[in-house]
Design a protein around this nucleic acid. Structure first.
Lengths: 206, 206
DNA sequence: TCGCTCTGAATGAACGATCATTCAGGCGCG
DNA sequence: CGCGCCTGAATGATCGTTCATTCAGAGCGA
């Protein structure tokens, strides 16, 4: 075999199989619901035996919690990606709006492009399947975002809002748009996105 | 109005028992999740036998769909209650804002005060348990709201937004606030409500 | 290089628990 | 008595989880 020491899959049980299981669970839960998504179906969809799933996760609940955290980590990665690490200099109000558009659109696109993942987040949060540990991990992951937000407030780039009020005004409209799209009531075009973002800017920019 | 003729439930047995069953289901589903809320638990919580539940609803799925529609009807009643039927005369921008506050706050308070009902709406929508018929009924109920909205646009009382964009900007923040409250991350005080509403006004008022 | 041992990932039939749903019978009232 | 609401043990299906078994391949002595 050519791949030996530098092989990027060092884990004893293949990480690739773990991903297949999580991907299968994500698809099925989003399509069939958290209720009536049996482990047998997840295994079949992933192309493994039922027992194999239990080599990677101790229980169904643990599997779903792990899936939730992975999905959320992916979303956070997208949300943070466009955040400029080094602040160059002074920004006009116009470029501030442009920076926010980059972040807001990235977040909106993630939710629109990852329909299954977006749905899973909602289901997990609403059905109370998340463990205390998962909730704690999630809050820890949000720490970076809070710093970013406080910076923006301090620089006067945002209106002086509570962190939570800002978040509600910032993402609330996105989640509602996604929900309307998922029920087939609306097609979220570029125009819809821009019009909504315009409203968001009015509510959170000075 | 007499008893609903469009309701598929046999109205012979006491409507009071039917309500007890729905109330029990609402409590349990919100606390335990749509998954693991067995019919036996619903019956016990309602103080009736399992078989009795099946006298009022043909199946668990039908029961949940009926519950969903009833919860949604209650919310719509609150939302429409403050809508002035007869338009007196000219309104200044200030009174327009006051009118909108009445509606927005009523909606927000409903979601905050009816934690179980609010949660049920989210669960039902996300898990795909709603039948096509239920979805159709829901859209029919929203017809009045659409008329109200078109009126406001025509009178220039709102910015010229799509119905869906307006809705996203109007309720999106409420739902996010409620979700933050339900996970224990925030206490929604009067100040939080007012600050959020202020943002909403900036986004949808001219 | 070959043959043998040993490891542990993978399997899927089997198991007990629990689910939604049914129905034969009890019970109260006219 | 008869009618009809109500009951809850019974039923069959299905769930999450287990574990005896399989088998590909790593290690090693000769």
């Amino acid at each position: 075999m050519a791949h030996a020491a530098t092989d990027p899959t060092p884990a004893r049980p293949s990480a690739e199989k773990r991903d297949a299981i999580l991907a299968a669970a994500l698809r099925l839960i989003a399509r069939l619901g958290l209720h009536n998504t049996p482990m047998s179906a997840v295994a079949r969809e992933a192309g493994v035996a039922v027992g194999t799933v239990y080599l990677y996760f101790p229980s169904k609940e643990a599997m779903i919690n792990a899936l939730y955290l992975e999905v959320l980590a992916d979303r956070n990665r997208v949300l943070m990606a466009d955040y400029p690490v080094a602040e160059p200099a002074q920004f006009t109000q116009l470029t501030q709006r442009a920076k926010m558009w980059a972040m807001w659109e990235a977040l909106a696109r993630w939710h629109l492009d990852h329909e299954d993942a977006s749905n899973l987040i909602v289901q997990c949060r609403a059905t109370g399947i998340l463990s205390e540990e998962t909730r704690a991990t999630e809050q820890a992951q949000d720490a970076d975002g809070q710093v970013m937000f406080q910076d923006a407030i301090a620089q006067g780039l945002l209106r002086d809002l509570t962190r939570h009020v800002f978040w509600a005004l910032f993402v609330g409209p996105i989640l509602t748009l996604v929900q309307l799209r998922d029920t087939g009531e609306i097609e979220v075009t570029e125009d819809v996105l821009r019009a909504t973002f315009d409203g968001v800017c009015r509510s959170v920019l000075p």
